[in-house]
Design a binder for these strands. Structure first.
Length: 479
RNA sequence: GCCGAUGUAGCUCAGUUGGUUAGAGCGUAGCACUCAUAAAGCUAAGGUCGGAGGAUCGUUCCCUCCCAUCGGCACCA
């Protein structure tokens, strides 16, 4: 058997200007399910996540709340890092773009792109709102005024910024995106390809320090700080120790398979700008970027004003960690938008977890505990069925989960058909044989849940090995 | 406006080489059982497969047009 390739997987880094959102929780558990699955298959895995902490919006928010900026981002980094326990994540690294090492790496990225001749200075002209202390976008203007300050006249400001020569990489990016595995799902790849073919503009990668100083200093220019995107993108390799060329970077990025996850609004950044930066710096491209959809609630985008925001912490509080993972991985579409409400989640929870998985384990283990002399022989490890493997290969977390629930249904049916609880009164040996099969079936279900619901996996395994009915896996919801 | 999708049972969705009675899960109704978290099992109701034309011996699945919904159309990240 050939050596399995090392696997690198990372989420995007959420921008820490708000509390963790269920959409990001989705990305995290998707990454975690893959990471655990690969480890189970025997791959060496490096799973990274973290926080993106520089830029205008964060500086502004911290200032407006009269908080020290570093203290402000420390707080939010903590809020995001708390998801590790809440969602039982197995990430190997949590990188913050304010980490010292990361700052150095971002500067090295800059130097390399500059050495390649891809960074140049150019005058940038834009409408600037003095009230917001930031440049306004054409689309944001309301009657030509800043939406937040309709009484103030935006002023035209010109400043010199550094630009990255993205346009140089059009041909390269077309080649890269022609590779069918560069982006999943494929229609996102088509979009990216069309976008690149339509022509690329260079983009600014710095801000004048006098106007915005919450960023990583541009090497060799005290007047400028990096634009947050240039800084943040570098995290995907700085987390592996880059620019140190050996060690983790070599093992996972150069010699391993690399996978990045992101929301569907990230295509331009992850698959276009970032890939051009990597090429410029002489670093191998990301093998695949997977883009998930958005989670809506009640048919609308979540927003504070609508009042339909779902916090992952609220989900965990109501259903528990494994059940929350279950909702996000089995009932949210891997890459299309999905609608989630507590009403729907209550149904899923009760039907599939309480009445389905939880009840099955309870009824089987009760019979086992009552009628077997001791634990069954530990079932041999069997290969996963093809549909389970295929589901993971195409990032179809729902299909992978469906395999488990199909088995749950089969076992429930088997109990109904063979009635071991009745048979035990007339033919104990036959009943015991059936119960043993059922327990083995539970064990297999537990194993299939390894990546989806790690805690449940452990409980089932323990229950089988000790021949003891566990406490109810999922508590019935209070009405 | 342009580009791209989507429109299949109450809900969420499967359904590619076009071929007899269109599927699953959840929900609903009834039957029945009792090992289990009043759970599971069986049965049933429920669909002109968005609409209209066309090509075909024949299409939910191909072509055209229309309607509806959604998303994107670069420096907010």
């Amino acid at each position: 058997m050939s050596e399995l390739k090392a696997k690198y997987i990372t989420t995007t880094l959420p921008y820490v200007n708000a509390d963790p959102h269920v959409g990001f929780a989705l990305e995290l558990v998707q990454a975690d399910m893959l990471a655990r699955y690969w480890r189970l298959l025997g791959h060496e895995v490096f799973f990274s996540t973290g926080t993106d902490e520089h830029g205008q919006k964060i500086a502004q928010k911290a200032d407006s709340e009269e908080k020290d900026r570093q203290a402000y981002v420390d707080h939010y980094a903590g809020e995001f890092n708390r998801l590790k326990d809440a969602l039982n994540l197995s990430n190997d690294a949590f990188i913050r773009t304010t980490d010292t090492h990361h700052k150095k790496a971002a500067q090295e990225m800059w130097r390399r792109c500059a050495a390649k001749g891809d960074i140049y200075k150019k005058a940038f002209k834009g409408l600037y709102c003095v009230g917001d202390e930031m440049f306004l976008r054409e689309n944001d203007l309301v009657d030509g005024k800043c939406p937040n300050h309709p009484t103030m006249e935006p002023i035209e400001v010109e400043e010199e910024n550094y630009f990255f020569a993205l346009s140089k990489y059009q041909t390269y990016l077309e080649e890269y995106l022609n590779n069918p595995t560069s982006i999943v799902p494929d229609w996102q790849r088509q979009w990216a390809l069309d976008f690149v073919k339509g022509g690329l503009e260079d983009f600014s990668i710095s801000r004048q320090k006098s106007r915005m100083d919450w960023g990583i200093p541009v090497p060799g220019d005290d007047e400028q700080v990096m634009y947050v995107w240039f800084d943040a993108l570098t995290n995907y390799i700085s987390t592996l120790g880059w620019p140190e060329e050996n060690g983790s970077f070599k093992k996972f990025w150069v010699e391993g398979d690399t996978l990045q996850l992101g929301g569907k609004d990230q295509v331009r950044f992850q698959s276009i700008m970032w890939q051009a930066m990597l090429k410029s710096a002489g670093v191998p491209a990301t093998d695949t970027v997977f883009y998930h959809g958005f989670v809506t609630s009640g048919g609308q985008k979540m927003s504070k004003s609508v009042g339909n925001v779902i916090s992952p912490y609220d989900m965990v509080a109501r259903y528990g960690t494994d059940a929350t993972r279950y909702m996000l991985l089995r009932h949210v579409h891997p890459f299309d938008d999905s609608d989630v409400t507590f009403e729907k989640m209550d149904e899923w929870y009760t039907a599939n977890l309480v009445n389905g998985l939880g009840n099955l384990v309870a009824r089987v283990m009760k019979m086992a505990e009552t009628h077997l002399d001791g634990p069954i022989e530990k079932p041999a490890i069997t290969d996963f069925e093809p549909e389970y493997l295929t589901a993971f290969n195409v990032f179809n977390f729902q299909a992978a989960s469906d395999v488990v629930w199909k088995k749950i249904g089969e076992l429930d049916e088997k109990i109904a058909v063979t009635e071991p609880f009745k048979l035990v009164k007339t033919d104990k040996a036959a009943a015991v044989a059936i119960i043993k099969e059922l327990v083995a079936g539970i064990y297999i279900i537990g194993r299939l849940l390894f990546s989806l619901m790690p805690e449940t996996n452990m409980i089932i395994k323990e229950a089988v090995l000790q021949n003891k009915k566990p406490d109810n896996l999922f508590k019935r919801l209070e009405i």
